[in-house]
Design a protein around this nucleic acid. Structure first.
Lengths: 218, 218
DNA sequence: CAAGTATTCTCTTGATTACTTGAATAGGGA
DNA sequence: TCCCTATTCAAGTAATCAAGAGAATACTTG
């Protein structure tokens, strides 16, 4: 039945177009950054510490696979994910990868836990804290990412400004920092900065877009 | 901060190992077949209409990414998925791909619907039918895949045997055929065979492993 | 132990991909 | 209109990957 073979070949060829787009570390990191909100080529290149030309080419490949869309805004070109499902796909890959390759778990432990005095805040805990309202919930990502979506009740305190803000705060309320996700070090760094100023704080277990209630509020 | 870059590079490199494994149509089809149950290299090569050597190499790549595991059984080597999460990852890729590339939907419509007199059975409908017990629910996949897991109450009627079995059945009970999934033509073929014998039947909308209740019973 | 077979390994060829560098394009602001 | 800047294009090189053919391996069965 050669007809059935042709149909299957075409079908899996299409699926592999998505697979090929996910086959490069650079492109996975680009998608991860774009999951935090729309960004320009230049800012993506800066975050990746890669050349603009290189990032531009990777974005072209992602656009050909229709995983991202671009849109001109002034002199910049702004890229965004083409569909919210892609965030779920990313997390699925990361989950499978972490499930299969124990070294990732170990790295994460090594990077995140040994510097961390206090254990991270679990999702349930944070939900209770938000409901009670008695918490400084700080979003330590860049302000643009906060603007693209954040947890309910969160304050935007980008990492470089953490050291300035806390001084005017009530000492008795707990401080909880969150960032891009499981593999982002920003919240970890914020907690460390605060600790060096003698202020206790904790980070969340997961990032914004892993929040169970779905998309965060604007 | 070059240390953070090194950590990120290593991390996304690991994620990309999974991505690279998913970047080939052949490997995606292999994973899809393995999601139906463990199989030998030879039977996989036969289904893919590829050489054994070629399939063996693709399996090696999948094994290096730790997506599949092998185990010797007699003179055969049996491969299986390393983790049930991988099925979810596959379906996620297919969903994103189908969401982005409209042509896949069109192909599927063209292949599946025009030959089909009766509309497919929805998941809710089938659940009601199974609960009532008043249905011939036939699993038209190869017997080995039925053995590896099937829907509750299903009969194993491999495609080549469909023409023999139906004759002893009660005409008044409805017949519903299911197969590997959304992109498998077996159930479609079974319905067509039955129609040529003057018997009405329908196929399900989804396959075994897309069943909402999770893994099927043994 | 020997024969037979399923599977894997090795090597080669051709094709695809990644990254860099330098030039070109295309808007926006003066 | 002209310049300025963000982005893209193009060319070249190094590296990686896909697929096939044939040899080698590993295991079972007699």
């Amino acid at each position: 039945m050669p007809k059935a073979r042709a149909w299957k070949d075409a079908l899996y060829h299409e699926f592999a177009r998505v697979g090929k787009a996910l086959a490069s570390p650079r492109r996975l990191e680009l998608l991860d950054l774009l999951s935090q909100g729309p960004k320009s080529v230049e800012s993506l290149a800066h975050e990746l510490e890669a050349t603009v030309a290189n990032v531009s080419q990777h974005l072209r490949i992602l656009a050909q696979a229709q995983l991202v869309q671009s849109q001109r805004s002034g002199t910049f070109v702004i890229y965004r994910l083409a569909h919210p499902h892609i965030v779920a796909l990313l997390h699925q890959i990361q989950a499978v990868s972490e499930g299969l390759h124990a070294e990732i778990r170990e790295w994460r432990q090594a990077c995140l836990s040994d510097r961390d005095a206090l254990p991270p805040v679990t999702t349930q805990e944070l939900q209770q804290l938000i409901a009670s309202g008695d918490v400084y919930l700080i979003d330590v990502r860049p302000a643009a990412e906060y603007a693209a979506g954040h947890l309910p009740g969160a304050l935007s305190v980008p990492l470089p400004e953490v050291a300035c803000h806390f001084q005017h705060w009530d000492d008795s309320r707990p401080i909880v920092a969150y960032c891009r996700g499981r593999y982002c070090l920003y919240a970890q760094d914020a907690v460390e900065i605060l600790r060096q100023h003698g202020v206790k704080s904790r980070r969340t277990e997961v990032g914004v877009w892993e929040w169970p209630g779905g998309a965060p509020v604007e």
